[in-house]
Amino acid sequence: MPARALCRQAALLAVRALYAELALYPKPGLVSLVDNGSHSDMTALTFMRSLFSLRHYFAAICRAGMEDAPFARLKQLGIAAERRMMAATGGINTHRGAIFGLGMLCAALGRHLATPGQARIATAADPAVLRAALLAGWGEALAAHTLAAPDGSHGQRAAQLHAASGAREEAALGMPSVFLVGLPALQATLARGGSMDHARVDALFALMTHVSDTNVLHRGGLAGAHMVRDQAQHFLALGGTAHPDWRARALDTHRLFVRHRLSPGGAADLLAACCLVHAFSRHAWT
């Protein structure tokens, strides 16, 4: 299949992954098609406008990955995509973390798809292969990126204040929260016969137990971060979506987060990344 068509397919899957995260409900504190969660400045429509603005970016960064472009080129594409997002949303940051995380995954896929035919087809887009492509292509550059000067975002200020890791550190390590936490949780729920929505809910709660979410730290400080982690651990300890009353418990958590204005947006971005890796691994790239 021509490179252009492959990149367009990758972009379509990336946009679908972001929509899957948006449409998921209950989703504690986060914007969905049902309500605005803990946010007064954005709605599902804001996210849809953002999604539409990013469709060409994901194809472009996948193509850059195919060409083994340096990280500086990927960064330029990401910055341009962020400007388009801000223009589409009236200056509201809906997908900044996703632009970085899902963009790097699309680049890693592109790098993998540029592998000679038989080697590529033999491994399809296995998650472990995708992670290896990410680290082999840009691991050193991503590590250096974590040391770059702060950009003034709420997330970076919160990370500095609380010594938390953020999207840069996550990517530099090959997205361990995606490949070692969220994706296994998603796959485990599917393996026991759970629906895709159940799998995504379980993956989100698993990520909330693991991630030092700078969005939460910005809004609620350490107390808010402990609340998010404790609530997520309790939900999973009861069996997650395997519990017959899981939806009511997830809704209770949602209402609690809204009362405290907590929004685990970092976990939401990582959930979208999990959805994308899962989709990449099931797609026929031939």
Rank of each mutant, 00 (worst) to 15 (best):
M1E: 08
A3Y: 02
C7H: 01
Q9P: 00
A11C: 04
A11M: 06
L12V: 13
V15G: 03
A17G: 02
E21V: 00
L22S: 01
P28S: 06
G29E: 00
G29F: 00
L30C: 07
L30R: 01
V31R: 00
S32Q: 05
S32M: 06
V34N: 03
G37V: 01
H39R: 02
H39D: 07
S40C: 08
S40I: 05
M42D: 07
T43A: 01
A44R: 01
L45N: 13
F47R: 02
F47K: 01
L51G: 08
S53Q: 09
S53L: 09
R55A: 14
R55Y: 13
H56N: 15
H56C: 14
Y57C: 09
A59V: 08
A60G: 12
M66L: 14
A69H: 08
A72N: 14
A72P: 00
G78I: 10
G78Q: 11
I79Y: 05
R84Y: 10
M86D: 08
A88K: 08
G91D: 08
T94Q: 09
T94A: 15
I99K: 06
L102G: 02
G103Y: 04
G103H: 03
L105C: 04
C106Y: 03
A107R: 07
L109Q: 05
R111H: 12
R111Q: 12
R111N: 09
L113S: 08
L113K: 08
T115F: 12
T115R: 15
A119Q: 15
A122S: 13
A124D: 09
A125R: 03
D126C: 11
D126P: 06
L130Y: 04
A132C: 07
A132D: 08
A133W: 03
G137L: 10
G137F: 05
G139W: 04
A144C: 12
H145I: 10
L147T: 15
A148K: 08
D151Q: 11
G152P: 11
G152F: 11
R157S: 07
Q160V: 06
A163S: 10
A164Q: 01
A164F: 06
G166N: 02
R168H: 05
E169I: 05
E170P: 00
A171G: 00
L173M: 13
P176Q: 04
F179L: 02
G182C: 06
A185N: 00
L186P: 00
A188R: 06
T189C: 09
T189S: 10
A199W: 02
A199N: 04
R200V: 00
D202F: 01
A203L: 07
L204P: 00
L207W: 05
D213P: 03
N215K: 13
L217N: 07
R219N: 11
L222V: 14
L222Y: 11
H226A: 14
D230G: 13
G239Y: 11
A242G: 15
A242K: 01
R247H: 14
R247C: 14
A248G: 12
R255P: 01
L256Y: 09
L256A: 13
V258N: 03
S263R: 02
P264E: 07
G266S: 04
A268C: 13
L270K: 00
L271M: 11
V277F: 07
A279H: 11
F280W: 10
S281M: 10
R282M: 15
R282W: 13
